[in-house]
Structure formats: C-alpha cells, structure tokens
Computed example of a mutant assay.
Amino acid sequence: MTDAVIVRYALTGGPFGTTDGRAAVYELQERLTAALAGLDVGELDGNEFGGDQVAVYLYGPDADRLYDAVEPVLRSLPHRPARATLRYGEAGDPDAVRYEIDLDTGRAEPPPARPKPGRRRKIVAAEGDVFRIPLDGVRSVYGQVVAKHDYWTLVVVFDALSLDAVDGADILLLANTFEDCLADGEWPIVERRAVRADVPWPVYKFWGSTTPPVIVDHFGRVFREATPEEARTLPSRSQTTANAVTDAARAAFGVGEWDDSYDEFLPDDKATVARVIGS
C-alpha cells in the first residue's frame, strides 16, 4: 500500500485540542474503518495530534480510489480548516507526486500524472527489529522496535553509536510513533533481536469520553481510573512523527539544538507500568 491520503484538521483549545474535539476524531476513525470495510481500497493507519492540528493517515494502492471511498466521512468532521493531501507513492520516494484538496471548496489543483511503475515496496517492521538513525553522514545511533499494536509503534533509541554497544547501552529516548522512517528505509533495519528486559514500559493518562481519565499502557490497555495527582502529572497517550524522533536523536548527539518538545521522549521512571501499576 504505497499511496496515501493524509487529512489535517485544525484544532481549538490548545495544541492537542479539547477532550470533545479529540473524541470527535476518534469517532471519525471508527466511521472511516467502517466505510473501508470490505472495499479493498486501503486502510486507516492512525492519527497524530499536535501543533493545533490533527493529521489522519490512510494508505492504499490507489490514492484516488481511497479518497473517493472516504470523502463523505472526511467532510463530516466539523473541524476546520481541513485539507487532504493525496500522495501517489511512498513518503520517501522522490518521484512521488502530491496534490491538496480543500474539504470545503474541492480540489486545489488538477490531479498530476501518476508516477511511473516500479515504486519501492513498503517495509513492514516487526517487534525486535533493530534499526539505525543516521546522525551526520558519518555516525548513526541505534534503536529498536520494542512493541507494535495496530498503528502504534513503540521505539527506543539507545546511547549506542555501534551495533555492538546496544546490549549494554542506556535507553536515551522512548516514543510512540508511526512507521514512516522504517517503512521508507530512512531508518534501515539491521537485525532482529529479543527486546531487552529493562525497557521502561510507559503508562499514560487517557481522557477519551471518561471523567476522570483512565491509566493506559502503550497498547491502550486500561488499568484503572487515574487519581487526581496522576491526572495532573502523567503524560497523555499520543503519537509523534518519526522525523521528530530523528531530530531528538541528532540533538542528543550534538547535531542540532535540543528543543524543549523533545523532553517528552526522555524515559520517565515515575511514569512506568512497574511504578504506577506495580507489575
């Protein structure tokens, strides 16, 4: 599934929107899944909240057929402004062409010609895959896929500039992300090995439609209601782009400046399943 339909909706009430606004997006995803059932035109791959907007990702073999199948559902979400990007080809394909559609006014420009056949296949990463993130053209840092569930991919980045150093290295970063850089080969997979026992499995608060929020793990499994203190201090469960993880990894090794937003990728031993749930 190399083509994509990526829809971005504006959010109000903060960078991640309001509780009701997020709930409307989750309901939209359920309706998209239902609309695609049995059509064989593509699938929903998840969302990304942040920066006063949410992006919804869909992938399929033909962006036009995929968009035609879900257009009425996409227009039904009232969040505006909203634009859909149709991408013909993989994210890392230099020959991939794109055009945008305003969900209120129609297509922004005529559809471009389809790319030539022979595009690269999407790489499907698996739990345990060790990958490298290029830092500066010479050095690479190593990471691992430690868990996968639906469209969620939990990765860690080790304090390791060589594959041999991975086993004994500290875990520098931990993030729930998309598979973009893995699927497109920007994070080359070098081998598969067992996930280390010392991964600090994270917990989050999740509001959804419940009050108070509940505590969930990286898979979204619900443990219990959050206490008022946990509701105040635990991070919210969300996904980040693989590019943001790349930028954070580079900054950690002196390639670029560290941004405060990268702090969310730092492992927090106070927000783990072992610490909060006790198992």
Rank of each mutant, 00 (worst) to 15 (best):
V73L: 00
S261H: 06
P81I: 11
P15I: 10
A231L: 05
G143V: 12
S209W: 08
D269E: 12
A4K: 00
A147E: 12
D64R: 07
A160P: 04
Y99I: 11
V214H: 04
P61K: 10
G46P: 01
D217G: 02
A96C: 07
A248V: 00
Y26G: 03
P202C: 09
D102S: 12
K116H: 13
R87F: 00
P111F: 03
A126E: 14
S209P: 09
V7M: 08
D40C: 09
R224P: 01
A35E: 05
G42T: 13
N243D: 05
G106N: 05
V214F: 10
F265H: 01
V155Y: 01
G51M: 13
V5C: 05
E230L: 03
Y151D: 11
K205G: 06
P212R: 13
A91F: 06
D150R: 02
E30G: 14
V222K: 07
V157W: 01
G220N: 09
A175E: 07
G220W: 10
V25Y: 00
R107K: 05
A165Y: 03
W258F: 11
S279C: 10
A23R: 05
V199G: 06
T233H: 05
D167P: 09
A96V: 12
R192W: 05
T18S: 15
D129N: 02
K148C: 07
T105G: 00
Y9N: 02
A231I: 07
V56A: 05
L74D: 02
L266H: 08
E225H: 12
V73K: 00
W258T: 10
T211E: 15
A63R: 01
G254R: 00
P115L: 03
D40R: 15
H149V: 06
V276A: 07
Q29A: 14
A194L: 14
I133Q: 04
V276R: 03
V138T: 15
K148Y: 05
S209K: 14
I215C: 06
Y9F: 09
W152D: 09
P267F: 05
G46I: 12
V203H: 04
Y88A: 04
L172N: 09
V146Q: 00
D198K: 02
L36P: 00
V7N: 01
G42P: 02
I123S: 08
W207K: 14
A113L: 08
K205V: 15
E230P: 01
S140P: 00
G46Y: 13
K122H: 07
T210C: 03
L44R: 06
F206G: 01
R193Y: 13
F223H: 13
